[in-house]
Simulated scan of single mutants.
Amino acid sequence: MARRKKIYEGKAKILYEGPEPGTLVQYFKDDATAFNAEKHAVIEGKGVLNNRLSEFFMTGLAQVGIPTHFLRRLNMREQLVRQVEIIPLEIIVRNFAAGSMAKRLGMEEGAALPQPIIEFSLKDDKLGDPLVPEEYIIAFQWASQQDLDDIVRLALRVNDFMSGAMYGVGIKLVDFKIEVGRIWDGDFQRLVVADEISPDSCRLWDLQSGEKLDKDVFRRDLGNLTDAYAEVARRLGVMPTNATHITKPTLIN
């Protein structure tokens, strides 16, 4: 497919004009960032892995009736997605205390939460994606109360699917974040899961050892990030189970 006009470039992806109205081509870069891009590296193969893993999760969500923007994978780094109106929030679902939550509340990292907790942060890198309460969201009209109710239901359904998929391959889903977009059909709107779901946007720990298999490997200098992501892909059947250390991933079509 001939690449078209660049629409947007973020820290980990580029969006290009799609081949048909209402579509975009989403390109996965090898860039890894942390701490609001204060830490940055280019890690060969990361974009390929995230493309395939996000395809796996988005396809699985669609199979259980959870709507997403994903249409199909185009190649090893690109996928075709629906163009949506992104709600300017990151929706964070936490099953265990970790990261900023553990630090903020003085909790032991890994402590089980009594129930999944959903947090909202404003999508604004310059402000550090600050947490915002529902009252702010409604007052500033980033989303309506009905939107928030629908987003919470959607996020909990994603959590159920993701937790089960990860547990089945010996991985604990500690937390994750998603973005949600609106698709309009005349005056009717439908909310869908957008952006990506990958180890970039999840905390994934091995059930037995507690080994981290997500971007914390990069944040905390715990080892090779590609190896961690490749391990997740191997367990989910996206890569051969007998694959060894790789820098240019060879993935199953």
Rank of each mutant, 00 (worst) to 15 (best):
residue 163 S to M: 11
residue 163 S to P: 00
residue 164 G to I: 08
residue 164 G to R: 15
residue 164 G to L: 02
residue 164 G to F: 09
residue 165 A to M: 11
residue 165 A to L: 08
residue 165 A to R: 13
residue 165 A to W: 00
residue 166 M to W: 12
residue 166 M to G: 01
residue 167 Y to S: 11
residue 167 Y to T: 10
residue 167 Y to V: 04
residue 168 G to V: 00
residue 168 G to N: 12
residue 168 G to P: 02
residue 168 G to C: 03
residue 168 G to K: 11
residue 169 V to F: 11
residue 169 V to G: 07
residue 169 V to D: 05
residue 170 G to F: 05
residue 170 G to K: 04
residue 170 G to W: 02
residue 170 G to L: 03
residue 171 I to L: 08
residue 171 I to C: 03
residue 172 K to F: 03
residue 172 K to R: 15
residue 172 K to H: 02
residue 172 K to V: 15
residue 173 L to E: 01
residue 173 L to V: 04
residue 173 L to S: 09
residue 173 L to G: 09
residue 174 V to I: 14
residue 175 D to T: 06
residue 175 D to A: 04
residue 175 D to L: 09
residue 175 D to Y: 05
residue 176 F to Y: 15
residue 176 F to E: 11
residue 177 K to T: 12
residue 177 K to G: 09
residue 177 K to R: 13
residue 178 I to R: 05
residue 178 I to Q: 03
residue 178 I to V: 14
residue 178 I to D: 08
residue 178 I to W: 05
residue 178 I to A: 04
residue 178 I to Y: 12
residue 179 E to P: 01
residue 179 E to S: 00
residue 179 E to D: 06
residue 179 E to M: 00
residue 180 V to N: 01
residue 180 V to D: 01
residue 180 V to A: 04
residue 181 G to E: 03
residue 182 R to P: 07
residue 182 R to S: 04
residue 182 R to N: 07
residue 183 I to C: 15
residue 183 I to K: 14
residue 183 I to H: 11
residue 183 I to N: 05
residue 184 W to Y: 13
residue 184 W to M: 09
residue 185 D to A: 15
residue 185 D to G: 12
residue 185 D to N: 14
residue 185 D to I: 03
residue 186 G to T: 11
residue 186 G to M: 11
residue 186 G to K: 07
residue 186 G to D: 08
residue 187 D to R: 13
residue 187 D to W: 06
residue 187 D to L: 15
residue 188 F to R: 15
residue 188 F to L: 08
residue 188 F to M: 07
residue 188 F to C: 08
residue 188 F to T: 15
residue 188 F to V: 13
residue 189 Q to F: 12
residue 189 Q to C: 10
residue 189 Q to I: 03
residue 189 Q to V: 10
residue 190 R to D: 02
residue 190 R to H: 07
residue 190 R to L: 04
residue 190 R to W: 00
residue 191 L to D: 06
residue 191 L to V: 09
residue 191 L to K: 07
residue 191 L to C: 12
residue 191 L to H: 06
residue 191 L to R: 11
residue 192 V to D: 01
residue 192 V to K: 01
residue 192 V to T: 02
residue 193 V to I: 14
residue 193 V to L: 13
residue 193 V to H: 08
residue 193 V to A: 06
residue 194 A to W: 01
residue 194 A to R: 03
residue 194 A to Y: 01
residue 194 A to Q: 05
residue 195 D to E: 13
residue 195 D to S: 13
residue 196 E to F: 08
residue 196 E to D: 11
residue 196 E to Y: 07
residue 197 I to H: 13
residue 197 I to K: 03
residue 197 I to W: 09
residue 197 I to T: 03
residue 198 S to N: 03
residue 198 S to P: 02
residue 198 S to T: 02
residue 198 S to I: 02
residue 198 S to Y: 05
residue 198 S to K: 02
residue 198 S to E: 00
residue 199 P to G: 05
residue 199 P to K: 10
residue 199 P to I: 14
residue 199 P to V: 14
residue 199 P to M: 14
residue 199 P to Q: 09
residue 199 P to A: 10
residue 199 P to S: 10
residue 200 D to G: 09
residue 200 D to T: 12
residue 200 D to E: 08
residue 200 D to R: 14
